[in-house]
């Protein structure tokens, strides 16, 4: 466990792995299509939870923001912030709410600086979480459903999509 967690200090490797996984999913698309995305989602939930859970302490929000946040899961922030740190960070860089933990965003920013592929994504304005996607497979959602449930007005406003093809 701890060993896998230590991987988080190598965000530049993780981002490549992430990019690779997304590509693999795209290649497998015909299979998923055959299966139907609903089923694919059900099949993938558990492996995704185990894999990303071990490395990132993933909470299965269903709309992975890892590469936007220095490969640091923003769901680990007690306020679930997606666009940067709150104003309550402690002087030692620890979390306002949980004094035993480093602020997720202090870590995210440090890590994003090491990332070549997605490093600058930390400046992208992220939409509010879609609570309906909780617990679902983010890979299926991002790769094929194009985050279709992003608030409509937000989509029109930013044209932002999560895909990085």
């Amino acid at each position: 466990m701890t060993l896998l967690n230590r991987l988080r200090d190598y965000p530049h490797i993780l981002e490549v792995a992430y990019q690779f996984t997304e590509k693999v999913f795209q290649l497998l698309n015909p299979i998923f299509q055959r299966l139907g995305y609903e089923w694919a989602d059900k099949l993938l939930r558990l492996p995704e939870k185990i894999g990303k859970g071990a490395v990132f302490n993933c909470q299965m929000c269903g709309q992975c923001a890892l590469h936007f946040t220095g490969m640091t899961c923003p769901m680990g922030c007690p306020k679930n912030l997606r666009n940067g740190p709150c104003g309550g960070v402690r002087l030692n860089g620890f979390c306002e709410v949980d004094a035993t933990k480093k602020c997720v965003w202090v870590e995210a920013f440090e890590r994003s600086k090491k990332m070549r592929v997605y490093g600058a994504d930390i400046y992208v304005l992220l939409p509010p979480l879609n609570q309906q996607n909780m617990g679902r497979s983010a890979f299926i959602n991002i790769a094929f459903l194009k985050n279709s449930e992003m608030p409509e007005a937000w989509q029109m406003e930013t044209g932002l999509r999560h895909d990085h093809k």
Binding site: K79, L81, N83, C86, L126, P151, A153, W154, M156, E157
Partner: peptide
């Protein structure tokens, strides 16, 4: 229960969308 359905940046963007585009987040 802590809500934090939005973060402050998303709240700003929502308020601006309401003001400039004249719609709710839902469209």
């Amino acid at each position: 229960k802590r809500v934090f359905d939005f973060d402050s940046t998303q709240l700003l963007q929502t308020a601006r969308i309401m003001r400039d585009d004249g719609m709710f987040l839902s469209g």
